[in-house]
Design a protein around this nucleic acid. Structure first.
Lengths: 199, 199
DNA sequence: TGCAAAGTGAACCGGCAAGTCCAGACTTCG
DNA sequence: CGAAGTCTGGACTTGCCGGTTCACTTTGCA
């Protein structure tokens, strides 16, 4: 997206923000372009002006935006999950980030579920975010095995997968119950599981 | 649904089965009544004849049907999760059930995600199934604490919540990766977590 | 200052999918 | 048999929503 004036950039930004708000509350199918128009003092033509690919492109932009938010919230822990202290810090950061957002569609992966059957390309994109997230967890665990914080027979990739699944499930249940507790229980359970692989 | 002749019951059944097939593959939004019609040698009027509430009622019926399938697949373990042996048996039964269904929308809870914003009543219903499932896990853990298989300070309800979240997350990731491994990793992680509460 | 490019508003289109209607065919049972 | 109730087909209606068009204004730069 090049050649945007200040005014244009502002409008585009307004659209993304409003659309994000809507999509978090109502899901992809529940978000209509007309609602975005109403909520942003814009018009359809502008939507397609800034997102020529239509709804798909807009949703992709939102997913990217949300992903960066979530990843940022996990800083600085997410990059250095190579000590027990870091994992605990990470857990707290995740809880903090999602506290107060319990009623929303927070989970990137949950989007896949809705989007995959009708828009495979978009799904691929979202899955890529998830994979990067998962990879960060795995990297930390690999380092921990290397530094003998995990027993040698521990399988970092599989453990990371378990933690990630647990995290996503925690988010899912959190949303349906509108309560942070399921996420907290899931993460605490994951940490307990990991610690049982300490030498 | 009373006053159904044999023929009527058969038709109704045909509709539910075909609709289940479709919804598992494409999600709620991706399933259209016309497709059901095409796939079942029926017509719209019959859909509304057997499900006067329209799509919502049909989806509710499917959810109930799916739920009973999933619960049945966990027999006999799910009713007696009060020993480590039972948990292992349960884990195997779950994996077996979902193996070969990896490309589908298996998770009941995942449906909530799609349906909740637009149909709260239906969502409530689906959540009820999930709660019953969760309760069964909790019951087993309570018994295990009572019989000293878990340390007294273990919180069965919270542990059950963690296991359940992990399970749901495993299903979610399983779908997006089209691979059973995430589910297996999630369940194995959960069992490891539980076992660390053994005395 | 003027013109090309960017930005904007609103009416419009087309398709899709949920839900309706009704006429007629079967089933059941007195 | 025949009437009440059940089942069926398919054409029809309705409204929503993603996407298009086009005339117009604003902006920024040579």
């Amino acid at each position: 997206m090049t050649g945007l004036t200040a005014k244009g950039a502002a409008t585009r930004d307004r659209i993304v923000r409003a659309a994000t708000e809507l999509i978090l509350e109502r899901g992809v199918a529940g978000m209509t372009l007309d609602e975005i128009r109403d909520g942003t003092k814009t018009s359809k033509s502008q939507l397609f002006h800034y997102f020529p690919g239509g709804k798909s492109e807009l949703v992709a932009a939102i997913a990217g935006y949300q992903n960066s938010q979530v990843m940022a919230a996990q800083e600085p822990w997410i990059d250095r999950l190579d000590s027990w202290r870091a994992w605990q810090g990470w857990r707290d950061a995740v809880i903090t980030h999602y506290t107060g957002l319990t009623h929303k569609y927070c989970s990137v992966s949950a989007l896949v579920n809705e989007v995959a059957p009708t828009d495979p390309e978009l799904a691929t994109q979202v899955i890529a975010y998830a994979d990067r997230w998962l990879a960060q967890l795995a990297t930390g665990l690999h380092r921990m095995r290397d530094t003998k914080l995990l027993r040698p027979e521990a399988d970092p990739d599989r453990l990371a997968l378990a933690v990630f699944a647990s995290l996503q499930g925690g988010l899912l249940v959190m949303q349906s119950k509108n309560d942070i507790e399921p996420l907290a229980a899931a993460l605490d359970g994951s940490l307990t599981m990991l610690r049982s692989y300490a030498p």
